[in-house]
């Protein structure tokens, strides 16, 4: 299982893949645009004085619809993959997933409370409904993760095994509560709830994008600074301590970072599975487990793959749209099984 690629080749390949995904995400859809027009529109969005001054159709489509959606996909994919790496490092298990510490189910519960609770109180004003939903999801994810972390602590030490078990229990509890809300919901609310749980990049807007972009930026800047500590942690907690790292602080930081990142991603785009699990795994097969390469490479691969999955979600049943969570699970789950069988 020696890695097949040198890091430099991998980064070149990932750069090309990301460029392809960006182009596809901006140019393709119900109205497909030629490459030149897409580029011109994107550059004019950045303020470059190209072509005429009047807004054309391409610019409207790229600027108002596809650019925010693409940015959302970039941030969500990058953050989910990065947090997947963080969790696999924390649990020292290549098959760990950000959902393990309860952040996804907590966010889903928060969203369910917002959707069903909002409907019960006679509907939230249209203008603030999406913000309230995102806020509740974010807070829900943070709250359940904080609880999982608390339960894992004893005598000033954090046991990742206890955290894992607490995460399983709290996930079950959260999903039971979501089930209860689903049971109580009326038909229209039920539809919103279901679609939210399947994840979508639809309806992205700049206003809702900023919080996620900020969090994504913070996570992408901070996690790579812990690459060496994560490498040492893979040897074992004692070993990492003997190598001079503050393991308790590192674990706390990893949990907090994941809660923040995945919480914000789920709040912005709903539940999107398998990116956090499969992307780091895939990158590790290609270049090995060194976090100094794994973290940035997973970030690029996660962003690219999520954009491509979103493209598939938009194009397969056009003009209708598949929820992206279905696409990532449809591709991710068989791939994961393949990895399991191969690894035996």
């Amino acid at each position: 299982m020696t890695p097949a690629l040198r890091p430099r080749s991998l980064f070149i390949a990932l750069g090309l893949l990301l460029a392809l995904a960006l182009w596809g995400s901006l140019a393709l859809g119900p109205v497909s645009l030629p490459l030149g027009e897409t580029l011109q529109a994107a550059l004019r969005l950045l303020g470059l004085p190209l072509g005429g001054s009047e807004l054309n159709q391409a610019q409207l489509i790229v600027g108002q619809i596809r650019m925010p959606r693409t940015l959302l996909g970039l941030a969500v994919g990058a953050v989910l993959a990065l947090c997947g790496v963080a969790m696999q490092g924390l649990f020292r298990n290549p098959l760990a997933d950000p959902g393990l510490i309860g952040v996804s189910s907590g966010a889903a519960l928060g969203a369910a409370i917002a959707i069903v609770g909002g409907a019960a109180f006679g509907g939230i004003p249209e203008a603030i409904a999406p913000y309230l939903l995102s806020l509740c999801a974010f807070v829900g994810g943070l709250a359940v993760t904080a609880l999982v972390y608390r339960l894992g602590r004893r005598d000033g030490l954090t046991s990742v095994v206890t955290m894992l078990l607490a995460g399983i229990a709290l996930n079950a509890l959260a999903f039971a509560c979501i089930g209860l809300f689903t049971y109580l919901a009326d038909d229209a609310t039920l539809r919103t709830l279901t679609f939210w749980n399947l994840g979508s990049l639809n309806g992205a807007s700049y206003a809702r994008l900023w919080p996620l972009l900020l969090v994504a930026f913070a996570v992408a800047l901070w996690l790579p600074r812990r690459a060496r500590a994560l490498n040492a942690l893979l040897l074992g907690e004692s070993e990492a301590r003997h190598l001079g790292f503050e393991v308790e602080r590192l674990k706390r930081e990893l949990v907090f970072c994941t809660a923040l990142g995945v919480g914000a991603a789920v709040a912005a785009a709903g539940m999107i599975g398998f990116i956090g699990l499969v992307v780091p795994h895939l990158v590790r097969l290609l270049v090995g487990p060194d976090h100094r390469v794994l973290l940035p490479a997973s970030m690029l691969a996660g962003a690219s793959l999520l954009l491509l999955a979103d493209l598939a979600a938009r194009l397969v049943l056009a003009p209708a749209e598949l929820p992206i969570g279905i696409v990532t699970a449809l591709i991710g789950a068989p791939f994961f099984l393949y990895l399991l069988i191969r690894g035996r």
């Binding site: 020292r92 893979l234 003997h242 590790r284 090995g288």
Partner: peptide, 14 residues
């Protein structure tokens, strides 16, 4: 430096 009794490393480092 400390060498523990057994180390569990389940990642394919060289």
């Amino acid at each position: 430096a400390v060498l523990p009794q057994s180390s569990t490393l389940s990642f394919g480092f060289r």
